[in-house]
């Protein structure tokens, strides 16, 4: 790395903070009392978080988001890895067609399935349930495509050596392919998790019961019902908003480079 020019570094820091200032300010605001906020004074409090979590049910929404995004990620990455392995290592009848059908999902806009999926889940009684939130989000063509490209880069000699030792195809997948694809699998799991965490339109139509709201729905409703009388209770709304972005924000700080790598590999290749 080249030595730093301190002036440039300082300017870059200021530019970054300015760019993020709306979000940074919203976090700051979430620690202000509503009276102090409207009076333009300072008044530190944790009460907004206490109210968001207690009175406005955000602890439950956080739990729902974790359950839904967690299960979607777990099932999504498992199915994508299995399919990617078959596409990368087996030649079988219909493989090209099935792979094309997988890749084509990248071009299919999700809004087309909104009404039919709603009707399907209504018919089998899964609206207003975790299953209803999770099932339509599990298949991820992009992850399967991405992982297939990655697995093809792993030397086939490794598989063959394992088969010689009497391993089954499941063992080859689990003992050789999965460990060697860890960075790619991690990138895709993260991508699936973030996408599902931030998903809005599907939970908006699929869930009516308050106990099943995800954070996104909870936050949108809280903002819409305007809990302040006349004036919006912005500090409370911002506390809820901070709860909504925090898990992804923390994850981002930990694994930014994985994420960036995954995104650029997918787009440029």
């Amino acid at each position: 790395m080249k030595p730093e020019n301190p002036i440039l570094a300082g300017l870059a820091l200021i530019a970054g903070l300015l760019f993020l200032s709306p979000v940074l300010y919203s976090i700051w605001m979430s620690f202000q009392t509503v009276d102090a906020y409207y009076a333009g004074e300072l008044g530190f409090t944790l009460d907004n978080y206490a109210r968001a979590v207690g009175q406005y049910n955000f602890a439950r929404y956080l739990l729902n988001s974790l359950i839904v995004s967690g299960l979607v990620t777990l099932l999504g990455i498992t199915f994508a890895t299995m399919a990617a392995y078959a596409f990368a290592r087996y030649s079988f009848r219909g493989a090209n067609l099935l792979f094309a059908a997988t890749v084509a999902t990248l071009m299919i806009p999700s809004h087309i399935s909104l009404i039919p999926n709603y009707l399907t889940l209504a018919k089998i009684g899964l609206l207003d349930s975790y299953a209803g939130l999770i099932l339509p989000a599990i298949s991820n063509g992009f992850a399967a495509f991405f992982l297939r490209q990655y697995i093809r880069g792993i030397p086939k000699a490794l598989d063959e050596a394992a088969y010689m030792d009497g391993a089954s195809s499941l063992q080859v997948l689990w003992r050789i392919i999965v460990p060697l694809s860890r960075p790619a699998i991690a990138s895709m799991a993260l991508y699936i998790f973030i996408t599902e965490w931030n998903n809005y339109i599907w939970p908006l139509v699929a869930v009516g019961k308050q106990d099943l709201y995800t954070l996104q729905i909870g936050l949108a409703r809280l903002y819409r019902i305007n809990p302040g009388e006349g004036l919006i209770d912005w500090p409370l709304v911002m506390a809820a908003s901070t709860i909504t972005i925090l898990p992804v924000l923390l994850g981002f700080l930990l694994v930014e480079r994985h994420l960036v790598r995954g995104i650029t590999m997918g787009a440029v290749k």
Binding site: A15, G16, L17, F19, L20, P22, V23, S26, I194, W197, N198, Y200, L215, Q216, L219, A220, Y223, V237, M238, S241, T244, I245, V248, L249, F252, E256, L259, V260
Partner: peptide
């Protein structure tokens, strides 16, 4: 990192903010 952050942040939160 700062510029990339919003693209992984909740759109609902961003819209509310």
């Amino acid at each position: 990192g700062a510029l990339f952050l919003p693209s992984v942040t909740s759109t609902v939160s961003i819209a509310v903010v």
